[in-house]
Design a protein around this nucleic acid. Structure first.
Length: 407
RNA sequence: CGGGAAGUGGCGCAAUGGCUAGCGCACCUGGUUUGGGACCAGGGGGCUGCAGGUUCGAGUCCUGUCUUCCCGACCA
């Protein structure tokens, strides 16, 4: 049973505007609502999708021994000054407290917070390695928010940080994270289209890696090696114009959405904060760090871009669909149909299935249209007609009750 | 930040400088309807983004400003 005010009445008419596809679909179907440029509210359907994506991420990170934490979004100026990014990170929201005149930042990333925190946790090589992540709202003062959920000023991100006593250990964990990421994209239904991509390493390593989902609306240009199924970001193509893994020079230019990136930070942040540990010889050394990001809300937008059918309606991959099953009750004036529907709904819930139960007193066309918009992959219709055959209709096929109730 | 477009009931739109700013959807009341977005009857809801200006008269013209969308630049 659902609250119609939150789910069924959030449908918005959308103009034949130039808004990006993911924004159009998600707003029209009532998954999100736009609050301002690059800032969205997640409504019940959309938030369930977000939570399903998060669940997959959590499961895969638990499998590689990362522990979940939650760091503050509100951050002191002093930490950002230590790394020099108070003045240099142009997307950092900075502001002054109205009452105390204190200058503060809204977190656009969390190296500046987790590194000093790690100082409290790490003294000895025996405290390493350590991996911690959070799923949290990030703030970035983008000059131009665009493409719906793909580039917002406020967005949900998973950021993982790892701490090691030497670079070999970092390298090994880095590869483990790559495999976890591959698992995540696969479970999200993006496996075939998401490529590990070599990108600029910045000042602290030769390369970083991104995960890029092929899509014409992507902001990034990558060059794909079809032999290795990896890619190179355009930003490093001058210095690296062959496949780094097989040497192939026959690379194919494509557009893609960056859905993850991982860096070997080495000692950049531990140096800035003096994060050291004592090794087994009694010597103090800087902690070696890595960081690993996945944009959760951007993934939702990406999935819509990839799975929208005929550029109009959505069909969610089963694992992240807002509900497992959409039960649509027709002929709601019939007590028999209503009772049977209620029974079916209870049965599904008992068996651990999440159900969107539409018993509204609406015409069939309204319910079907809404169901099309919402895009839950399993649709069950129960009606006078189906009861005549002593069953329900599941995705167009009549299934007798005795088969369903067994599961 | 540069360029373009647009701001009118909750949403989508209309309105030669001229009557009380309309229409569709949604909403409220009553009735009839129920396998692809129903119908009838009645009803409520607007200082036309904001601030100035021109004019006898401004939703409409001018200036400024804010906001949104698109293109570009930018993007650990």
């Amino acid at each position: 049973m659902y609250q119609s005010s939150l789910i069924s009445k959030t449908r918005k008419q959308i103009s034949q505007s130039e808004e990006s596809l993911n924004a159009q679909i998600l707003i029209k179907a009532g998954f999100v609502d736009q609050v301002m440029a690059g800032v969205y509210a997640y409504l019940p359907l959309g938030y369930r999708v977000i939570q399903n994506i998060e669940k997959i991420v959590r499961e895969e990170l638990a499998a590689i021994s990362a522990q979940e934490i939650l760091l503050p979004a509100l951050q002191p100026k002093s930490y950002w000054e230590k790394t020099g990014r108070w003045d240099n990170l142009d997307v950092l929201y900075r502001f002054t407290s109205y009452y105390t005149n204190t200058e503060l930042a809204l977190g656009s990333t969390h190296e500046e917070i987790i590194t000093p925190l790690a100082q409290n946790l790490i003294q000895s090589y025996q405290d390493l390695p350590l991996a911690a992540y959070q799923i949290q709202t990030k703030f970035r003062d983008e000059k131009r928010a665009k493409s719906g959920l793909l580039r917002g000023r406020e967005f949900i991100m998973k950021d993982l940080y790892s701490f090691h006593s030497n670079s070999e250990d970092l390298d090994a964990y880095y590869d483990i994270v790559i495999q976890a990421y591959i698992n995540i994209y696969k479970r999200l239904g993006l496996g075939d289209k998401t490529l590990k991509t070599y990108a600029s390493g910045g000042s602290f390593s030769k390369y970083s890696h991104e995960f890029q989902t092929l899509s014409d609306i992507g902001e990034d240009t990558i060059f794909v090696c079809e032999k290795c199924n990896i890619a190179i970001n355009q930003e490093i193509i001058d210095e690296q114009n062959t496949c780094p893994e097989c040497g192939n020079s026959d690379l194919i230019e494509k557009k893609a959405i960056e859905v993850g990136n991982i860096f070997k930070l080495q000692t950049k942040y531990s140096d800035a904060f003096g994060l050291e540990f004592t090794d087994d010889k009694g010597q103090n050394k800087p902690v070696i760090m890595g960081c690993y990001g996945i944009g959760i809300s951007r993934l939702m937008g990406t999935i819509v871009e990839i799975f929208a059918e005929n550029n109009a309606k959505m069909l969610w991959p089963a694992e992240i669909s807002p509900f497992d099953t959409h039960i649509i009750v027709l002929n709601t004036d019939s007590a028999e149909v209503k009772n049977k529907a209620e029974e079916l709904y209870q049965q599904y819930q008992k068996n651990g299935k999440s159900v969107l139960f539409d018993s509204r007193d609406e015409r069939p066309g309204v319910k079907f249209a809404d169901a099309d918009l919402i895009g839950i992959p399993e649709r069950i219709i129960i009606s006078k007609k189906s009861l005549e055959q002593n069953g329900v209709e599941i995705n167009g096929v009549i299934i007798p009750f005795e088969k369903i109730y067994k599961f």
